[in-house]
Amino acid sequence: MQPDPLVFGASGLIGRFLVAELLRRGHTVAAAARGGGDGLTAWLTGRDVPLDGLAVVRADITRPDLGLPPGDLTAVRDVYNCAGRYAFGLTAEQARATNVTGAVHVLDWAATRAGLPEHDRGREEAYWILDDRAPVLPELIGLLAAHMGCGRPGVRSRSGCCGSSLAP
């Protein structure tokens, strides 16, 4: 099984919804997580998501090599970084290790992938954050909105149900 998308932070709130949507669309997905992925697979199973295209890989984005063996994941064409560390009492150094330095490590790793389209290589083009150019983003936002009890998504419509100060 050769996964084409790789999702970092796959067991987190956003990552698991993305993994579920990619699997439902028939992709073979590499789900990168710090742990063994048991929580992710249980969550996916509870939502009737097919697991036959899932490959859980251990990764640590705080390491420059991401903790991934060299030469693995050669078929990866899309890299999604949903990893983040948020907790009360977290020091700036702890937060930075994952949320800043870890993101840079993911970008550096993605930039070395031969399978990524040429225009997507490098930091300038490869990192999108909630950008409508991401292949499954509109659907992912819809899933998250439904999970949060919001109506049909859209920046303005979500702002009212989620307590944002954005005016309609």
Rank of each mutant, 00 (worst) to 15 (best):
S11R: 08
I14H: 00
R16K: 14
F17P: 01
A20C: 09
E21K: 06
L23R: 00
R24P: 07
R25V: 04
A30K: 02
A30Q: 03
A31S: 10
A32V: 06
A33M: 15
A33N: 12
G37H: 10
D38A: 15
L40D: 08
T41Y: 03
A42P: 02
L44R: 09
T45H: 04
V49N: 07
V49Y: 03
P50T: 03
L51F: 14
L51G: 08
G53K: 01
A55L: 09
V57T: 12
R58W: 13
R58E: 14
R58C: 09
D60L: 11
D60N: 14
T62G: 14
R63D: 08
L68Y: 12
L68E: 10
L68I: 15
D72N: 10
D72C: 14
L73N: 06
A75L: 04
N81K: 01
C82K: 00
G84A: 06
F88L: 12
G89Y: 05
G89W: 04
A92Y: 07
A92V: 09
Q94V: 00
A95K: 04
T98P: 09
T98E: 11
V100R: 13
T101R: 02
T101L: 03
A103W: 00
H105G: 08
V106S: 02
V106D: 04
L107H: 03
L107F: 01
W109K: 06
R113S: 09
R113Q: 10
H119S: 13
H119L: 09
H119K: 07
R121S: 08
G122R: 13
E124F: 03
E124N: 03
E125S: 11
I129W: 01
I129Y: 02
R133A: 15
R133E: 12
L137W: 15
L137D: 08
